[in-house]
Structure formats: structure tokens, C-alpha cells
Design a protein around this nucleic acid. Sequence first.
DNA 1: CTAGCATGCACAATCGGTTGTGCATAGCGT
DNA 2: ACGCTATGCACAACCGATTGTGCATGCTAG
Lengths: 338, 338
Amino acid sequence: MVSDSSSKRLTIYDLARLAETSPSTVSAVLNGTWQRRRISKKLASKILSLAQAEGYSANMQARALRSERSGIIGMILPLYDNRYFSSIAQHFESEARRRGLFAIVSCTNRDPKQECEAARMMLAYRVECLVCTGATDPDTIAQMCAESGVQSINLDLPGSKAPSVISNNREGARQLTHAILNRLVEEKRSDDPVLFIGGRDEDHNTRERIAGFKQAREEVGLVTAEENILPCDYAADKAQTALERYMLKRSTPPSAMFVNSTISLEGIVRGLQLNGYYLDDIIFGCFDWDPLAAAFHPRLMMVRQNVIEMIDRVFELIDTPPQDPHLLIEVQPEIMGV
Amino acid sequence: MVSDSSSKRLTIYDLARLAETSPSTVSAVLNGTWQRRRISKKLASKILSLAQAEGYSANMQARALRSERSGIIGMILPLYDNRYFSSIAQHFESEARRRGLFAIVSCTNRDPKQECEAARMMLAYRVECLVCTGATDPDTIAQMCAESGVQSINLDLPGSKAPSVISNNREGARQLTHAILNRLVEEKRSDDPVLFIGGRDEDHNTRERIAGFKQAREEVGLVTAEENILPCDYAADKAQTALERYMLKRSTPPSAMFVNSTISLEGIVRGLQLNGYYLDDIIFGCFDWDPLAAAFHPRLMMVRQNVIEMIDRVFELIDTPPQDPHLLIEVQPEIMGV
DNA sequence: CTAGCATGCACAATCGGTTGTGCATAGCGT
DNA sequence: ACGCTATGCACAACCGATTGTGCATGCTAG
């Protein structure tokens, strides 16, 4: 490693001087097109070993500028801090890496303005594709991408201007609800009501989950009272107060609850603990997955969305872009702890 | 919005044609140096509104290439999937955004090879600074950065070739241990042993935490037997089997445990549940923070590292790079649930 | 002996910005 | 009327790669 004392980094021009050849030849060798350009094997290996020895690393900005390919793929994400979104980020990254792409992920706090701003930044950095995860307003972003000629894909929440990959929320909710109801039967409490709590009723996923919940109950001959459906938003505090308000009318907590995310579960559990209720007898079904929570509670069943398959589907869409922007791919989640 | 049907994006040359001026003028106006270049206010606002109307967005690759400033700041991270690391990523991102920088975060699975590879990529994209979080081998990366003339900073785990920002692990552990011991006294079980479990004894943080643990016990006149210190690595399975092996000699679980991360806690709780032990009486102190876990267990105390302050310190170091690469900044964590 | 092709490489334009410099014109003082 | 400065902008070089094209040279075939 000769690394100049000058902090300037090596360019193909430096390598060309060192190898006594031309920059274009160095470029061809380093980006693998040298056979097509009929560079001799001898010169090629000379340049390669030189580059190695000197620790050359290509300036991606220059490459991107000239080749019109940034090598970057972007994702916007609501939050990192739950197992679902963080594993989405993680798999997205490693899958991108496997394909020689550099993944950049931006966290937008479920805020449409931040989503737009992040998308604008990503487009400025000339991402080759933008994956829009759990966006509150996916269509605006899809529109921005389309105007820049950049492919976009929706993940977790569907949109109408770009293909979408989501979980089969209805079927997952149906299965989770059946699991809850079976557990009630096993424990001879089949007449007790089940409370659905958490999520937003404007949001596609919540609506589907409510539909699955009702459908499962219908399938065993139960009708669902609207008062037992509480889409009070996701936040822990909202869920906690919603439950407290619900319980004003009754003296005991519901024997079973369908909780629409771990963050809602957090509020609910905290509220019940604070009020001195014994938790272990309550049957929880949570449409989300957190192994630490699952370890703590014996009657907690969880839906684990199939992140690996979802990310695979996303990259398949990237490889062969579909014609239909309404394309909706639903991936089956798994019920844990039944 | 006139957006050409041609998918080509607008450049300063297009804007110059539209505004009947020169590209250099457009550039000066758009990057704010127009006053210094004595462009008339009239022309400036004409160009600005044109850029707005046409939805111009600068090509960051071109800008970075010419100005030698990518506007990118990088971070490598072991994992996303716990509250500590995910909030590090989240605050890093928003703080970077506040400073007009674009954050890119890469997940390296505690694997030195992946860490190196990610650092290489980041350097190829000409990050202006690299923050190295919880790296297994921070010095190698600091070395790579130094050779490229890029500033680097260690976070969470210290290194010797770049300044480091970490939690005050020893003091945090000392306080957590005191909290555990106080609880034992309150519950009249002060003679029961306390088990330290989880972490790696090669790792700086674990060593410090063990030291803090022992120190706290010493301060109340207790000596710590080495058999009660089990740095069995972080993974859930490792912790589970380590605890099971430990319990072969005794019939009941320890009344109190100092658990060195939520991932270890997961294995321990799961193991105890599987073996039918009643958890709620066990006092847990966990050097990590997870509000959902905290909601579930009444006797779980947790250490919440002060991520916001740590990230602030990191950016202060970026703003005014210190001369001494051995600089170690320790941030006080907070004990939750005492 | 020479046309013709393959081989091996160098030249130069280009991507889209940034920035040092230079050149008009206008305004001002004397 | 003349010189001087201030104003307002355009020119062109450059950042570091990629890539179409062209020019020697060597070899083969006729």
C-alpha cells in the first residue's frame, strides 16, 4: 500500500499513470468490460493487481453520473422500532446487497410530509427504484416516482398507482380469530366476548383484519357487536385509554382480545397491570410478532408476517416490472403460539 | 408542471434555456450563492419559480462529483431488531436530516467481514463521515476511513483509532444492581444470590457491566462468586441453555437476575416458562430497554441508554473533530421501573 | 506482395453540476 | 469628457468515471 501522503484518493487516471496505460483501459478493466474491449489478459491483470495493492475504490458519484445508474435502491419506512419493520429493513438491505445494489432506508414516522420529503431526497440521489413501506399516502409518492421515470412498489399497505405487496390481512386475521375462539372453547369460556382493539379504520390493513375477525366469528355462528370493535389508532396510549373507557361499563377485562399491533398491546398490558388485573388468564391474539413478548405471556398468540417472502416478491417485481399498477400480491402470514 | 413527455429529467441546462440565461447562473441561483455572484434579484426569482414550476431536482451525483461533498453520512449497525439499535438509527437519521445530510445505515450482523464490506461501500459512495456502531472490530474500520481521509466515530463500543461515544456501562450496571439488591431487601430476600447472565466477556461493555455489578455488591458488603457470572454471549438460545445448565445444581430459579440484553432475556424467560416456573416473583434487571417487556413483567427493571444524548455527542464530535483518537465520551443511562 | 481481418489499445466526448475568471455596460465623481 | 468602480452575467475548466470510435500493428489468405 503506497497510499500517497496527499489525502486525495486514487482515480483511474492515477492508476493509468502507474500502469503506463490509458484511463479508458483502466476503466474497462475495473468494470469488467475488458474482454469486450479486447484488452490483453496480461495488461488486465497488471491493472487489477495494481488497483488491489493501492486500495483503489471507484468514485460512485462519477460512475453514477456517467452511466445513469446510481446503484442505489431506496425504501421509506414508518419506523424501525418494531420487529416487523426492522426485519423488513434488514431483509431489504441484505437482498439488495446480494444484487449488487446499495440500499438506503429512510424513516418517516407515518407523516405524509416526511414521506414526500424523503422520496424527494431519494429521487435526487437517483435511486433506481423506491419501495414505499406502510405509507400513509403511497399514491402521491408513486406519482412523484413516475414523473421521474423511477419504478416504485408499495409494501405492507397497498396503493393504486404502483404494484403492491402486502400480507393477506383478512385471512391472517381470520386464522388468528379462530385460534382465539378455539382457545376459549378449550378453556370452557366460549360464551365470553372478544374485543378487537387497535389500528385505524381508515387504513386498509385494519379494515381487512376487522373483516377477517368478523368472518371467523360468523363461521362459528357468532355475531359481532360493533361496540366490541375499537380501532383506536396504533399508539400505546390510545389503546390504553380506549380499553379503560371500554371497561368502565364492566368490572372485569375481556377474556380475550384481538390486538392489532404490538404497540397497542403495550398500552393494553400496561393499563391492565396498573389497574391490578391478573394478565395470565387473558387470551391475547396480536396481529404482529415479538418473540420477547411471546416469551412472557403464556396465552399470547401472534401473527408473524412473512417478511422474507414479501421482500422476495418485491424484488421479483423489480426484476420484471408488471404492466398493471393495480397489481396486488398478498402473502400469507403465519400464526405463532397456537 | 410542463414535465416533458421525454422521461429525461430537467437539468440546469434546460432551466437556462427556459430562463434565457446561462447554466452557471442557474446553478448559482439554485445553490444559494447568487448574491455573492451578483445575480440580480429579478433573474434569481425568475429562475427559482421556474425551477419550482418544473419540479427541478438537482442531480446529487453531479453535485457531489464536482463539489467533492456527497452530503451523505454513513452508519454501520449490528442489527435493527431491538429498541436500542433501532432508536439509534432513527435519531441518527433525523439528526442528520436536520443538518442537511442524508443518512445511510447499513446492518452488518455483528460480522467483521460484513462490517468491512459495508464500510468499503460507504467510502465508495464518499460518505463525509462514518459512525461505527457496536462494531466487533472498530479499529480496522477507523483505519480504512483514515486512509480515505474520512472522519469516523465509534458508538456504543469504543475503539482506539477514533473517538468513541458510549454509555457509562459500569455506572449503569452499578445502579441497576443496587436497584435489584434494594428490591431483594424490600421483599425480605436479601440473602438470595443474584445471577449475572448474558453478553461476551471479550466485549468492553460486558466487562464494564460485570465490574459495576460486582462493585455494587461490594458496596453493600456482598462478595460475588464467579459461578454467578455467566457471560454466555447475547443470543437467546445461549442464555437459555446457560441458565438451564446453571439450574441443574439447584431446584429453583435464582430470585434475581442481572440480564445483559433483551435478547438474552428472551431466552431466559422462554426457558423458565417452558419448565413451568412462575415468573412474576423473579426480580429481573435488564441492561437494555423494551417497553413492551416492561409492561408484561411487574418486577422487571431496565436500563435505558440515553440514545438522544449519545447521538448529540456524536454530532458534536463531527462538528468539532477532536485531536485525540482515544477520546472516550461516556453518557449516563437511565434506570427504568425502579 | 497485398488486401483484409483480428488484436490491442488510446482519444475524446459526455454525464450535470460548481466555481474562478473575464467582459461588457452602467453609474459616478471630477 | 474621462477614468474608475460597481453591477450583472457568461465562458470554460473541472470533478472521475463510461463508452463510441479510430488508429496502429500483426497475421492470414489469395
